[in-house]
Amino acid sequence: MNAVSTKPAAEPAVVSRPALAALPKPSRIVPFIAQVVPPLMVLALLGVGWEYLASGPNATLPPPSKVWVDARDLIVDPFFDRGGLDKGLFWHLLASLQRVALGFALSAVVGVGLGMLIGSSPFFMRGLDPIFQVLRTVPPLAWLPLSLAAFREAQPSAIFVIFITAIWPIIINTAVGVLNVPQDYRNVAAVIRLRGLAFFWKIVLPAAAPYIFTGLKIGIGLSWLAIIAAEMLIGGVGIGFFIWDAWNSSNLSDIIVALIYVGLVGFMLDKVVALAGRIATRGTQAS
C-alpha cells in the first residue's frame, strides 16, 4: 500500500516524466560476422587440406591450385560460346535448368491435381495409392530407356524423366495436406455452404499449401538430381553431359568446377521454392 500511495495520485504521467535516455542500438554488423566467418573458415581449412592431400606424387585428383590453372576460362567467364558444345558453364546450366523448369512445372500441375484427387476421394486413394507407392521407388534413370523409346528424342525424354521423378513427392504431400485440412475449417465451410470447386479453391488449397510446398521442395531437389544423370546419357548441351564429356577427355579440373556450380544451382533452386512457399503460405502455419 505504501508504495502505491507515494505516487502523485491523479497527475498525468506524461508531463512530469523526464525524457528517457536513448537505448544503445543493437549492432547489426556483429551478428552478420558471426554468421559469415565460420563457413569461410571451414571452407579455407577444407581448401588447405585438399591442396595438401592432392599435391603428393601419387595423387589422382588435382589440387585447387591446379584446378584454378586448368579451368581458369571456365571459372572466370561462364558466358563464352564458341559454338557446338564448347560453351561457358552458364549456357550448360541454362539448358539443364530449362529442362528442369519444364519437367518440374508439368509435375507440379499434374502432381497437385492428382494429390487433390486422391486426398479427397477414398476411392481414388485406394485405387491409386498402391500404384504410386510402387512407382515412386523406381529410380529416375530407369525411366529413361522407356521414355526414349516412347518419345524417340532426347529433349522430351529428359523432360519426362524430370516429370516422373518430381511428381511422387508432390502427389503424396498434396494428398496428405488435403487429408489434414482441419475439421474446423470443413465445419466452417459446411455452415456457409461452400461446396465443390469453391470449397477446394478457398479452403482446401490454402489449408494444404504448406504440405504442397514441402512436396514441391522435395520435387525440385530430385529433379536436379535426375537431370544431371539423364543428361550424361542423352548428350547435347547441359551440365550433365558437360561433366560426362569432361570425364571422357580427362579434364578433371572442369568436372570439379562443374560440380561446384551444380551444387550452387541446386542450393538456389531449393531456396527459390522455399521462398515461393513462404510467400504463398504466409499466415497459414500459425493460427
Binding site: 466452417v188 499449401a209 499466415g283 500459425a286 493460427s287
Partner: peptide, 9 residues
C-alpha cells in the same frame, strides 16, 4: 466455434 476456427490465411 470454441477454437474460433478462423481461416488463418
Amino acid at each position: 466455434f470454441q477454437n474460433h476456427s478462423l481461416l488463418p490465411w
